[in-house]
């Protein structure tokens, strides 16, 4: 995989996704960055903004296995990761066999993740972090690439189980899905209410995505840029000497080291997508909001 191929594939993915998803270019770009970084994204937005459509389209474009899990209060961990069931073979012998849950896919949409109990949420979050699940003392690896896109509704908070800070930290990006403007709404109406519906082409497969992920990690980053990232993360903590006044006044707890990792990885991918071979401070400026917005705990 060369950087040129990386750019070409990424551009094609965005082009194909944009055939289905109207507007939301930043969301599409940041979702792609999350995917290429091997992370998971949390999308926050009201229902009907195309979150499911985005993940489904991505799965089509990448020719990957897609699954959707609708989180409800009665959803159990086994409903997500799968369970051992008793099966009888042709000889009549009975044995337990692991039946994988919907999490065993390349692209997983965890819809309204905050409606499930913390126990269920944690089952998914383990899979997100480790790319594996353990059932009956047996660990089952996910197939790569593994990408979870969780959504949560900022409205209707009653009866929900907000994700704890430790769990939120496992998401690479938190993306705020904004409501489309009038032109975009008109385009959505034209595309979805006619006889023909746009169907994206498959551009890459899971192997290609893995190669792209590998290349992105090899992007050079100068020591002074890494130090800048480290200083930025330190400055999100109110007890740091270099923290700005706003942080000292409003931030209770700053970003974890995962935030720095996400910042640098996202910066590398942004640099490659921009046609560069080095990470720049401007890349950090571009990716800092989705990296840090769910990692800063505000004073109440």
């Amino acid at each position: 995989m060369t950087p040129e191929q990386f750019n070409e594939i990424a551009a094609n993915i965005e082009t194909q996704v944009s055939r289905v998803i109207v507007g939301q270019r930043d969301i599409v770009r940041q979702t792609l960055v999350t995917l290429l970084a091997g992370g998971n994204a949390l999308l926050e937005g009201v229902p009907g903004l195309g979150k499911t459509m985005l993940v489904r389209t991505l799965a089509q474009v990448l020719d990957c296995k897609f699954s959707r899990i609708q989180f409800t209060p009665d959803l159990m961990p086994a409903d997500i990761v799968g369970t051992n069931i008793l099966v009888e073979d042709a000889s009549g012998a009975r044995r337990f066999q692991f039946e994988p849950g919907p999490v065993f896919a390349n692209l997983v949409l965890a819809d309204e993740i905050n409606r499930a109990t913390p126990k269920t949420q944690s089952a998914l979050l383990e899979a997100m972090q480790e790319h594996s699940v353990t059932v009956a003392k047996t660990t089952h690896r996910m197939s790569e690439p593994f990408f979870v896109l969780a959504t949560q509704n900022p409205l209707e908070m009653e009866g929900t189980y907000p994700l704890p800070e430790a769990q939120l930290d496992r998401f690479f990006f938190k993306l705020n899905v904004t409501f489309p403007n009038v032109d975009e709404l008109v385009t959505i109406a034209d595309r979805t209410t006619g006889q023909d519906t746009a169907r994206p082409q498959s551009i890459a497969n899971g192997m290609t995505i893995c190669e792209m992920q590998q290349l992105a990690r090899g992007v050079p980053i100068a020591p002074h840029i890494t130090q800048a990232a480290a200083r930025l993360i330190r400055a999100t903590h109110s007890d740091d000497a270099n923290a700005p006044d706003m942080v000292k006044r409003y931030v209770k707890w700053g970003s974890s080291p995962r935030g720095m990792q996400a910042l640098i990885l996202a910066g590398k991918i942004t640099a490659l997508l921009d046609g560069r071979y080095n990470v720049a401070l401007d890349d950090f400026r571009a990716v800092a909001p989705p990296v840090l917005r769910h990692r800063l705990i505000r004073e109440t």
């Binding site: 050079p220 980053i221 100068a222 020591p223 002074h224 840029i225 640099a271 921009d274 560069r276 080095n278 990470v279 720049a280 401070l281 401007d282 890349d283």
Partner: peptide, 17 residues
Amino acid sequence: ADDELALRDRLATALQF
């Protein structure tokens, strides 16, 4: 030069490497 010419830290990174 990187800052003023919007070179996105190209020169400084190259010098470092």
